[in-house]
Simulated assay, not measured.
Amino acid sequence: MRAAPLSPTRPAATRRVLVFGDSVVWGGAVLDQSLIATERLRQLGVSEVGNVATPSWGPGNWLGWARRFGFLQATDVVLVISSHDAADNPSPDPFTGNPNHPLQPPVSALVEGLERYALPRLGIRLPLAVSSAPASSEPAAPSGEPTSPADPRVQRGLADLARAIEQALQLPES
C-alpha cells in the first residue's frame, strides 16, 4: 500500500477511506508522495486514507488484496478503474519484462538513456532478453488491447470486479 500503514482496527469516530486502483491511484515513481491523490485527500481532512494500488493492477489484484487483508474497517471504499484495467488480471506466470519494467538494473544511466530513449527515437529497438519462463495461459486479445466484453480476460476482470464490489458492500455501517 502506498500510504502510511493502517492498523487493523479503526479508531472510533475516524473516517477511513481505502482507494483501490492502478498507476493512476498509485501516482507513479516520479511524483512526490505528498502530491498523489490519496495524500491530497488526507491533507484535505480525511482522517485516514489507504492507497491500495500499484501499476497495472486490476480488479483481480484488488480482490486478492481484500481477501488477504480485508477492508481494515474502512468507512468508505473507492474503486478507480478504466476500461483497460478490466483485463489486468493477476497471473502465477513469472514476469518476463518489457522496456518499462526491466528485470535487471541498467549497466549505467548512460546505457539506459541510450537504450530506452535515444535509440527508440531514431527508430532503433534492441530486442529484450528472452526468458525461459512459460508463456501466459491468458489468450491474447484479437487486436492487442482488450476492448471487447467478449474477451475472456475482460470477462474474468469484470467477474473479479463484481466480487470485490460485493465484498465492499458487506462492510458494516459506521
Score class of each variant (00 low, 15 high):
residue 1 M to F: 07
residue 1 M to Q: 01
residue 1 M to P: 09
residue 2 R to I: 08
residue 3 A to R: 11
residue 3 A to D: 07
residue 4 A to R: 10
residue 6 L to E: 06
residue 7 S to V: 10
residue 8 P to V: 14
residue 9 T to G: 05
residue 10 R to S: 06
residue 11 P to H: 05
residue 11 P to E: 12
residue 15 R to G: 11
residue 16 R to D: 01
residue 18 L to A: 00
residue 19 V to Q: 01
residue 22 D to A: 12
residue 23 S to Q: 03
residue 27 G to W: 01
residue 27 G to R: 04
residue 28 G to Y: 01
residue 29 A to C: 01
residue 30 V to M: 04
residue 34 S to R: 14
residue 34 S to V: 14
residue 35 L to Y: 00
residue 35 L to V: 03
residue 35 L to W: 06
residue 35 L to H: 07
residue 38 T to K: 02
residue 38 T to V: 12
residue 38 T to E: 10
residue 39 E to W: 05
residue 40 R to E: 13
residue 41 L to W: 15
residue 41 L to D: 09
residue 42 R to C: 01
residue 44 L to I: 03
residue 44 L to E: 12
residue 46 V to E: 10
residue 46 V to G: 09
residue 47 S to Q: 12
residue 48 E to H: 05
residue 50 G to E: 11
residue 50 G to I: 13
residue 52 V to F: 13
residue 52 V to D: 03
residue 54 T to C: 13
residue 54 T to V: 09
residue 56 S to T: 07
residue 56 S to C: 09
residue 56 S to R: 12
residue 57 W to Y: 15
residue 60 G to Y: 03
residue 63 L to Y: 01
residue 65 W to F: 09
residue 66 A to V: 06
residue 69 F to V: 07
residue 69 F to E: 15
residue 71 F to C: 04
residue 72 L to C: 03
residue 73 Q to V: 03
residue 74 A to G: 02
residue 76 D to C: 05
residue 77 V to T: 03
residue 78 V to N: 08
residue 82 S to L: 10
residue 82 S to V: 14
residue 83 S to T: 14
residue 83 S to L: 14
residue 84 H to D: 02
residue 84 H to C: 05
residue 85 D to F: 01
residue 85 D to G: 04
residue 85 D to T: 04
residue 85 D to M: 06
residue 85 D to V: 03
residue 86 A to G: 04
residue 86 A to K: 05
residue 87 A to R: 07
residue 87 A to I: 07
residue 88 D to L: 07
residue 89 N to S: 02
residue 89 N to L: 14
residue 92 P to H: 14
residue 94 P to T: 08
residue 95 F to T: 00
residue 95 F to D: 06
residue 96 T to Y: 02
residue 99 P to L: 09
residue 101 H to F: 07
residue 103 L to N: 13
residue 103 L to C: 15
residue 103 L to G: 05
residue 103 L to E: 05
residue 106 P to S: 15
residue 108 S to M: 00
residue 108 S to H: 10
residue 110 L to W: 12
residue 112 E to G: 13
residue 112 E to R: 15
residue 112 E to T: 13
residue 114 L to C: 13
residue 120 P to V: 01
residue 120 P to F: 00
residue 121 R to E: 13
residue 121 R to Y: 06
residue 121 R to A: 14
residue 121 R to L: 15
residue 121 R to T: 10
residue 122 L to H: 11
residue 125 R to H: 13
residue 128 L to V: 00
residue 128 L to G: 10
residue 128 L to Y: 04
residue 135 A to R: 14
residue 136 S to K: 06
residue 137 S to R: 15
residue 137 S to M: 12
residue 138 E to I: 01
residue 138 E to F: 13
residue 139 P to S: 05
residue 140 A to F: 02
residue 140 A to H: 06
residue 143 S to V: 06
residue 143 S to P: 00
residue 144 G to P: 08
residue 147 T to E: 10
residue 148 S to M: 04
residue 149 P to H: 10
residue 151 D to M: 03
residue 152 P to S: 14
residue 152 P to L: 05
residue 153 R to G: 11
residue 153 R to C: 00
residue 154 V to N: 01
residue 157 G to N: 11
residue 157 G to M: 01
residue 158 L to W: 02
residue 158 L to E: 08
residue 164 A to I: 03
residue 164 A to H: 07
residue 165 I to T: 02
residue 168 A to P: 11
residue 168 A to C: 10
residue 169 L to A: 09
residue 172 P to Y: 07
